[in-house]
Structures are given as C-alpha cells and as structure tokens.
Design a protein around this nucleic acid. Structure first.
Lengths: 345, 345
DNA sequence: CTGTTAGCGCTTTCAC
DNA sequence: GTGAAAGCGCTAACAG
C-alpha cells in the first residue's frame, strides 16, 4: 500500500538513487528532475521508510530524552522544550521516564539498550545510579545533562549555589536571621546536585552574615508541595520557629504557604517565603522566587546534542550555566519582632 | 564496535537464524543452544539493531504519543502513564507535542509523516483540525483517543457532562442559585469536547432545578490558572456576582481562588468554588473537585493500542468511559445571604 | 547530473 | 532443531 522509493523512481522515470538525492535536497540534481520527483512523490503519497534509511545510514534521527518524575513541573516544562527543539530539526524524541526511584520498582534502567536506537541523549537531572551513569557513558553517544554537570559529557544548568545565596541574601537583607531551609531528601541518590548545592548556598549566605545555620532549621521537603507542607509544619512547631523559609522549589514553597495559612500565620507579616523555579501557579499566588529558565535549558540541551551530531564545533560549550533572577513579589517582607530588636541593638 | 548478530552466531557456532530464534524465545530451539547463545550474546554485549529488525519485520515497536500543551497538568500526568505502560511492554514512546494552537506557528502537523515510524498512536485530547484528524485516520494504524471519542477509533475518557452535573448539583444542593461557569475558549477548535460537554452539564443541572443559566455567568478561562483568575475577576465584578463558581479544571479553579482572595472574599463563606481534575496542589489548598483518573486513562489507552496490535480481541472496548468522583473539601459551603432568603420564602 | 551496485543487520521461508 | 539464502527499503560509493 505505501509507496516505496522504487515506485517513485519508476513513475518519475529516474533511478532510486536520484529520487533519494532529490528528495533529500542533496546537490547534483537538476532543478527540473528535482521538481518532477517531488511532484511524483507527493502524488504517490510517498514517505521514506525511516527504518530503511536508518539501517542504510546508521543514523536514527532520534534522540532519547531521559527524565524522572515527568509529571513534575520542572520536568514537564523541560521535556516540552526539548521535544519542540528536536522535532523542529526533524528528530524524533524518544521519551524515557525513569520509574520514580522512590518506589521500589526502580530496578535500574539499562542505557545500553539504547544502542542503535538513538543518535544522542538528553538527560534531565536525574538520580541515576552510578552504574546507569556508566552505561550512558559507554553508549558513546553525544550526551547532554540538564541540571547537573557530569564529567565527560556536556551540560546545561544553573548555578544552584548562587540561586540559594540569592534567595537567602534577599531574606537577610530584609532583616531575617532565623531562616529555614526546605530542601531535598538527604538520602537521595547522588549526582542529583541541586538539593545539595542549594543547601550549601543557604549555609554560605548565612555564615557570611555571621549566622551559624541551625540543624533544626533544615528540613527535607522531597521537592513536592506536600513535602513542603510537612516540612513547614515541622519548622513552625519549633520552640523558636524561623521567621522566613527558603524552599528549594516553588512547589515546596506553595506547600509552605499552605502550612502557614493553616496555622493562621500571615505571609509575609508573620512568615516570609522564597521559592525557586518560576512556577506560574506560584507567581499567581504572589510567591517571591528565584526564577530559572527551564525551557531555555531544555532547548539549549537539544541544540547541543544536535550540533554535536553535526560535528559542528564539537563539544563547544561543554558546560553552560544559564543565569537566574530573583523576582520579589508578595511573600517576603521584614520580620516582625525579634529581628526588629536585633536591628536596633 | 557494536556486536552484530553474525558475531554472536560465529562465536556460538550456530547460524544467525538460530541466534535470532534463540534470543527471541521462539520455539524450535534446543534448550542447550538457547543457553549458549544467550550467554555468548551477553558476553559480547550484543543488542539487536532495532533498525534492522524493523526493516525486516515491518514492526517498529514504537507508539506515537501526540499531545498539546505538554506542560499542563493533565497532559503531563497522562503522558507519564502512557510512557510507563509502553516501555513496560518493550515499546518506544515517540513523543509528539503539537505546537500550542494558540500561537500562530501551528502550521498543522502531518500525521502521515508517521507512516512506518510507529505501529500505533495514542492521541491525548487535542484540538486537531479536521484534516489532521483525517490524516490520523488514513494512517490506518491502531489509534486510541484519550479524553474525546472520535468515530472509527478507540477511546478512553470520562463523562464530561456528568462531571459538570456532579459539580453543579453539589453547589445547588448547598443552596446556591447563582452559579458561574469558568470554561474553555468558545472559539477553540472543535472536537475538543470537554469544554462544551462540561458547559452543557452545568446548564442541564441548573435547568433541572428550574434555573435558567445567565449568559453573564459563563466566562472562558482558557484552562489556565491565569485565565481562571481573569474569568473570576470578571464574574465578581458583575452587579449580581455569583455565589459559587464551577471551574472546568482545577488549574482554573486555583485562579478563581486567587481572585477571591485578592478581592478580600472568603472561601467558602463568600464564594464557593468547585474544580475538576484532582490536581495535588489544589487538593493541598482544600479545593472541592470532581476527580478524574488521569493516569488510569493513559495506561488504559496504551494497553488498548498494544492489545489491538497483538490482534487480541480486536477493538474490544471501543469506547471506554471511566468513572469520576466528587471530593468535597473546604471550598464549598452554603451561600451566605441571598439564597438563604430564597430558601425561606 | 544520473544510474549501477553493493550492502546496512536482521528475519523468515524453505530445505535438510 | 538448524542452516542457507532471499529479501525488507533505502543510501552511498563509484562509474559514466
């Protein structure tokens, strides 16, 4: 039923080689034949067989997009951007969702199974285990990581330490001294650097202001709104609760907001909250946050793999760090009482 | 570098045909040779060339997943579910994001380009144009639509009219008479049935209670939180603002919540709000909603294509409708004044 | 500029 | 149970 290249060749009165060249826009084809071939191909509804051309060229025109928690805001945004970029260049996006490592079904994903199925790989900050990372490396395909930099591969990310410093500094400037940190799960797989880096930035900023971070002010939020809510409840139950909270993601920050509301605390009068991301729902709620360019990171990652495939300026920009921006809205303000006294002292 | 089937055959001292049969678990292979072959293959790190086997068999072991607005909650959830199901069955998920039809770059996607690239298609409720729909049909591949039923293809969805009735009935029971509806954009492409159906359900429920729907109470919200916010602002500026709002999605409902808060209205005392979906962020905020099983719809859709591919009970369950459930939380309560009077009359 | 001719790596009859 | 051989549909030298 589907026309093959030979059918087109016959109908156009040329060889299959010419049809192939004409349709792919290769040089050394007269305009007239190219026109004819295109017309005939269209008439016959001819579509090249991807399988056949893959086998013949060794190129798949597909890129694997590996991501965990694809339902989460960051990943959904990034995946959309990567996909759009790939498809625009005629590449297929092979989506690979890692099972939530939290559940025990995570029996490990074997990157080697990707051999011959894709030309390159985009890995969205993912808690890959060491052996999986190794597998990806052994694929020997152009690979770019988004959100974390891995030695030996390209990467696109933001400076997570700077992100946290920015957020924490903002709170410090406002006069806060008791600043809680709601971050990731400490027993999370490694090379998921964002949580650790953000924590480090929070600490660094505090210390720079002569404040020693209190262990009790550091609570894991699992990067979910629910986790943020629970973390905030824990923080707010403390004998000396923090007057401000820096949550490592907007989703967690929204959880913090809910916790505050439930306790009857007003934001920002009684509690200041800063997040990270640029989640539109958070923006609507007036959350002060450090925005990161998610779509840009995804698009750039896709471009890097594609460029690398074309052999253009190979491995250019091995590690790109995109800028972030503090957006102050309505969830941050000077603290009410305690720090006011401190300021006057 | 990558081992080919011939290498395995040679190393195992058998023919390529036998290797092929052994590795795929086909019958007519002695247990001993199967063992040997498997071992040798493993040793050599052999992975079948998807391209080659595709060309030879005509099957791609890939399914296209077409979705618009992949960043939105519903789609992200559904895509994750479809992908998980497919990969579990050894199928590749080829992600195809339609450009946001809202932007003008939507030059139409040509489904025919999928020919030979996938064995089946899962289409997530998408505003396909008539010709695109036709294209998908002409692909003559097993296709299942999620969220809308299209003639000639399988589908998995919920009863959107019932969803709206459920939500509206709940408000009516509470005593509300002025119930606004925040829905989709009226000038949206067709066969995006949810908005229209939900609107119909809202109207039907009202009429059933002898209330004639007021045009002014019906405002488009574009299915985004921002749109919901704007719509609510419009509703609340009315001379006689509604005492309750039914938003056709949780994201829009959250926008309504923000609008209410900005106006200093208390929810549910001054305004009741009901959404649709089961968005976890909305749950956290206590939103009363009609929950739909999104992951289940995605998983089922994937299963239907796969079954159809295996020729099992072809086209069984042509149109599956999954149940929804009203979850009452804290954003709905009896109206304060007006209806109280009415009730007493 | 265009045609001829080998494959790409696997699957699949059809014999043995 | 196993092997030989003929493709699957396209691309890529290499001639001409």
């Amino acid at each position: 039923m589907n026309a093959r290249i030979e059918d087109v060749a016959r109908a156009a009165g040329v060889s299959t080689a010419t049809v192939s060249r004409a349709l792919r826009g290769l040089p050394n084809v007269s305009e007239s034949t190219r026109t004819t071939v295109s017309r005939v191909a269209a008439e016959l509804g001819y579509v090249v067989s991807r399988s056949a051309s893959r086998l013949a060229t060794g190129r798949t025109l597909a890129i694997a997009v590996i991501a965990p928690f694809m339902q989460r805001w960051f990943y959904a945004q990034a995946i959309a951007a990567v996909e759009a970029e790939l498809r625009q260049s005629g590449f297929d996006a092979l989506l690979i969702g890692l099972n939530d490592p939290a559940d025990l079904h995570h029996e490990g994903f074997d990157p080697l199974s990707l051999r011959g199925r894709v030309d390159g790989v985009v890995v969205l900050t993912v808690p890959l285990t060491g052996s999986e990372l190794d597998g990806v490396r052994r694929l020997e395909l152009p690979t770019v990581y988004v959100g974390a930099s891995v030695a030996g591969a390209m990467s696109v990310r933001i400076d997570d330490v700077a992100v946290a410093r920015l957020a924490t500094e903002h709170l410090l400037q406002l006069g806060h001294a008791e600043i809680g940190y709601v971050g990731g799960d400490p027993r999370q797989p490694l090379n998921f650097s964002a949580p650790a880096d953000r924590r480090a930035g929070w600490m660094a900023a505090l210390r720079q202001h002569g404040i020693e971070p209190v262990p009790a002010y550091e609570v894991p939020g699992g990067f979910t709104a629910e986790g943020g809510l629970a973390a905030a409840e824990q923080l707010l139950s403390l004998p000396t609760p923090p007057t401000a909270v820096f949550a490592a993601s907007d989703e967690m920050a929204m959880g913090v907001l809910v916790a505050a509301r439930r306790r009857g605390l007003r934001v920002p009068e009684d509690l200041s909250v800063v997040g990270v991301d640029g989640h539109e729902l958070a923006a609507l709620q007036g959350l002060t946050t450090v925005e990161q360019p998610v779509a840009a990171q995804g698009a750039l990652a896709a471009q890097l793999v594609l460029e690398s495939l074309r052999g253009q300026s190979p491995r250019r920009h091995e590690h790109v760090v995109l800028p972030v921006q503090l957006t102050v809205r309505e969830t941050t303000a000077p603290p009410r009482i305690r720090t006011a006294l401190v300021t006057q002292s």
